[in-house]
């Protein structure tokens, strides 16, 4: 029995959507892991937030200064700012302009 183009198309789509995405996620996360290990072998600390995520964290802290988790959030924010400003190698893509704008809370 010859398979129709529709069946073959769906088979290809399914393999791409499942195995393609899984293998992409697996490769990407394992590569990121090796980069993290590489960075941590050279320096004992590493940036923990991307510029976008750190900006969101700052916005949340400013919007919720009295939240029970605000101190924890501030500590995490300041930790990332310190690492980004004091270390040479970063995991996330930080431009010089991004780094110059950073301030501890």
């Amino acid at each position: 029995m010859a398979l129709s183009a529709e069946v073959l198309g769906m088979l290809a789509f399914t393999l791409l959507a499942f195995w393609g995405v899984s293998l992409w996620a697996l490769t990407r996360t394992l590569r990121q892991e090796s980069r993290k290990v590489d960075i941590l072998e050279q320096q004992d600390r590493m940036d923990t937030y991307s510029p976008e995520a750190l900006a969101e964290l700052r916005e949340w802290i400013e919007d919720h200064p009295n939240d029970p988790l605000a101190d924890r959030a501030r500590a995490q924010y300041n930790e990332c700012v310190d690492v980004v400003t004091q270390t040479d190698r970063h995991f996330y893509d930080w431009s010089d302009a991004d780094i110059n704008r950073l301030e501890r809370l």
Partner: peptide, 23 residues
């Protein structure tokens, strides 16, 4: 300490385990 959550714990786990069902 420096491990990711969303890519490995979310995308890879949900789609990866379903990929085994497809296989």
């Amino acid at each position: 300490e420096y491990d990711d959550v969303p890519l490995g714990g979310g995308v890879f786990t949900a789609i990866g385990e379903s990929s085994i069902a497809i296989l």
